[in-house]
Nucleic acid binder design. Structure first.
Lengths: 143, 143
DNA sequence: AAAAATACTTGATATAAGCAAGTAATTAGT
DNA sequence: ACTAATTACTTGCTTATATCAAGTATTTTT
């Protein structure tokens, strides 16, 4: 396989996957959260208690944009922030009780939408699919 | 591998890939074309002479939005439209000379950005990567 | 011939994202 | 210890991207 074919395969995948992600975004619209917001909530769940800066080490959003999203999530009682004692520039962010529940709902929605997409595949095909995704993850992102 | 692991793998991939596509979008910003516009031009190149409706069979954009994008591309002399003789509701759309050149530039930019991403991989790893993408394409999109 | 569907357009609006300037706190340089 | 630079976060303003709803013209269905 030459470089041109390799690049062609990846570009073909990208063209198709962009649309899948577009569909995913529409699924999230009904929830009242954007994909980006749901991503932020996922990170806060994973990290437990974190900061805007740490979230942005993953997401690389515009700082002002992130600040506003967090502000909105706080005003909707999904997140709370408390001033860090160690560094008074920093706000520690975490999920409220409501936030935990909302995040779980989003988590389930995401899993269900994936389950739907792979439901027409056999068990063996589903495993092949997962292994392909895992391989790409390792090769591209070292994970 | 159980269903939970399979879904987990795909979701992990998605979280990472969303950002790759975000970066790709930023690359395109400098060109004066959005990823969506470049996608439209790609389809017009592939199809030769096509219609808004046919483009949207692939992209599923809002009709009005697509109409405006096409309008803009026409006013920038990238596309031309001519009324179909067979059906006077329809406009046949195609690339101008300038449009062909611009599309080629976008094509190269896209290929180069992929080449950059895979450049740190060995030839063998690049082939594994392409094969993984191909397998996913077949499983998810039947292509 | 009327009703329904299709192809496309346009006005108004919403959502997502980015830029730039600013405040407050911390760290680095001398 | 004091100034300069950096970091964390915020806010006002703007742009980019996308959607909704209503409308025109044409074609297809009944």
């Amino acid at each position: 396989m030459g470089e041109i074919e390799i690049i062609h395969s990846i570009r073909k995948f990208n063209r198709n996957y962009v649309r899948s992600i577009g569909l995913l975004e529409k699924t999230f619209l009904n929830t009242g959260y954007s994909l980006t917001e749901s991503h932020i909530l996922y990170i806060v769940k994973e990290e437990g208690k974190t900061t805007a800066t740490d979230i942005n080490k993953v997401l690389h959003l515009d700082e002002g944009y992130l600040s506003r999203i967090i502000k909105k999530l706080i005003s909707n009682s999904i997140l709370i922030k408390e001033k860090s004692q160690a560094d008074k520039r920093v706000f520690k962010i975490s999920l409220t009780e409501k936030g935990i529940k909302e995040q779980q709902k989003l988590d389930e929605l995401s899993s269900c939408s994936i389950a739907g997409i792979i439901s027409h595949l056999s068990q063996g095909q589903q495993e092949e699919l997962a292994q392909s995704f895992n391989k790409i993850m390792r090769l591209l992102y070292g994970q």
